[in-house]
């Protein structure tokens, strides 16, 4: 669910420049077989909103929403740095959205804020319980997936044979994972090499790296890629690209694959040394 493109009948901190101030939120997740524990941290910099919290007229809230299990619940955060929320791990599966709000916990006859945008200066707004008065943004979490699993290429890609004897490989995006179709001859060679650890980095740099780069360019520059945005591979790559500190797509893809060229060159150097050339 998107909140930051909505038009509210009153100014909302965090939506465009309605209100001056800061409402930043973050969370960590701890997962066990039975429990998933969310630990949110919120920071609010706006005196009038802080006053609403202090006078029990507003609450910090965290909404957890998982489309795959029809789970959508809101938790009230009473301690901005020390609250924890525990839910059964079986309630979530796959992409889970975590949104943060500041909501009116009572009806407020006249809501004013000294830090309203000049357009609303001196205006008062009537608020009802549940009205969103600040939006702290969205975080994503992939439930029932270990961090290693999300990082692994196998979480987002399959390699299969295309049924054609020869020819270039190509990506097929229509499925829960991207499928890289190699020609039959290439696929046979790939299968004969992939069981040797020393060749895995070479495969990563020669097959997976260009395929992933092509995918990321497709996602970034081709509007038709949006038809695949409900697939898990899309969400995982999107999150990894958005979170990556790299400045170019080329850099980001190399980071996602843990510097495939470097690993490949080192591996080839090892093969070269072992063969005593």
């Amino acid at each position: 669910m998107k909140y930051n493109n909505r038009y509210f009948p009153h100014p909302v901190l965090g939506i465009r420049d309605d209100v001056i101030g800061e409402f930043s939120c973050d969370f960590t997740v701890e997962v066990s077989d039975t429990k998933t524990i969310f630990t949110p941290k919120v920071k609010l910099l706006n005196k009038d909103l802080e006053k609403l919290i202090d006078t029990d007229q507003a609450d910090y809230c965290m909404q957890i929403y998982c489309r795959a299990t029809m789970y959508r619940e809101v938790f009230t955060i009473y301690d901005p740095i020390g609250s924890q929320f525990q839910i059964s791990s079986s309630r979530l599966n796959g992409e889970t959205e975590v949104d943060f709000f500041l909501c009116a916990s009572k009806d407020i006859e006249t809501y004013k804020n000294d830090f309203f945008n000049a357009d609303y200066e001196d205006y008062g707004f009537e608020l009802e319980k549940g009205d969103i008065i600040a939006y702290g943004g969205k975080g994503l979490f992939f439930a029932n997936k270990a961090p290693e699993e999300l990082k692994s290429v196998s979480a987002i890609m399959n390699i299969k044979n295309s049924g054609k004897a020869n020819g270039p490989f190509y990506n097929d995006y229509d499925g829960p994972k991207i499928t890289l179709f190699l020609s039959d001859n290439d696929f046979n060679l790939y299968q004969s090499l992939i069981d040797y650890d020393c060749f895995v980095p070479v495969v990563h740099s020669s097959i997976v790296f260009p395929a992933l780069y092509e995918t990321v360019c497709f996602m970034e520059y081709d509007e038709s890629a949006s038809q695949f945005e409900d697939y898990e591979w899309y969400k995982i790559i999107r999150k990894r690209i958005d979170d990556d500190p790299g400045t170019t797509l080329l850099e980001k893809v190399q980071n996602i694959l843990d510097l495939p060229i470097n690993r490949s060159l080192k591996s080839m150097e090892g093969i070269f040394d072992n063969d005593n050339y």
Binding site: R6, F8, P9, D59, C61, Q63, R72, E73, V74, T76, F101, C103, E128, K129, G130, D131, I132
Partner: peptide
């Protein structure tokens, strides 16, 4: 669209 409905009780 404007209220956080899950924040409210069924009766509210």
């Amino acid at each position: 669209g404007v209220k956080n409905l899950p924040f409210l009780s069924v009766e509210e």
